[in-house]
């Protein structure tokens, strides 16, 4: 039996949420399903759904399928789709929104990309600066331990050329930055 349950009375919950959580005007509703986005995407071939499909799925209220999709995680943030979109949909910004929503809902399938972001921001939140060595080593040990061997000579090259810092740098105003971030997170939770 199909369609056993009655259609939801508020079928656009998910669409509304995606729009509300995108800074500025997402213009998501303006999508005319032309497919210029997917055709312009350098990593579109590796996505389970092209951006065009994802937007149709959002309108169809397919929350779980959208948030489980690898699509936003394969967005390389190149903005080709955004500048080519004839309807000026802020596609890249929407991809970032979908990443945040997938993490909040714990619905992503491949943990490598969200974990990379988490390790990256952990250094930033605690030091105020990014720390490449810490980021790469923590990330690779967790997700790609054999990958360390594959890029060992590159790492060695970076070290011998003096391009790798061994210790993170902490900004003077780290306490102020921590207070700013904590307050921002509180505010976002209140208004979510």
């Amino acid at each position: 039996m199909v369609n056993a349950s009655p259609p939801s009375l508020t079928p656009f919950d998910f669409l509304d949420e995606v729009q509300a959580r995108t800074p500025g005007q997402s213009r998501l509703l303006m999508c005319i399903q032309c497919g210029t986005c997917g055709g312009s995407c350098p990593s579109g071939a590796d996505m389970e759904h092209t951006p065009r499909s994802i937007f149709a799925m959002i309108r169809a209220d397919m929350r779980e399928e959208v948030l489980r999709s690898n699509t936003p995680w394969y967005c390389v943030s190149c903005y080709y789709c955004t500048v080519r979109c004839p309807q000026d949909v802020h596609i890249t910004d929407i991809m970032y929104t979908l990443k945040r929503m997938a993490v909040d809902a714990r619905l992503y399938e491949e943990p490598a990309a969200p974990d990379f972001s988490k390790v990256f921001i952990n250094w930033v939140e605690n030091y105020g600066r990014a720390f490449e060595l810490g980021l790469m080593s923590q990330h690779m040990l967790r997700h790609n331990p054999f990958g360390v061997l594959k890029i060992a000579d590159m790492g060695l090259g970076m070290v011998t050329k003096g391009r790798m810092a061994f210790t993170p740098k902490r900004i003077r105003g780290i306490q102020g930055l921590k207070a700013i971030i904590a307050r921002a997170k509180e505010l976002e939770a209140v208004h979510a």
Partner: peptide
């Protein structure tokens, strides 16, 4: 003086308001 990381493409992937606050600092 005492600038901080801009968050690259990572912070905005996890936090909206905090990433803007980080940059605005």
């Amino acid at each position: 003086d005492d600038w901080n990381c801009c968050g690259a493409t990572e912070y905005i992937s996890l936090q909206m308001l905090a990433s803007y606050a980080l940059i605005a600092r």
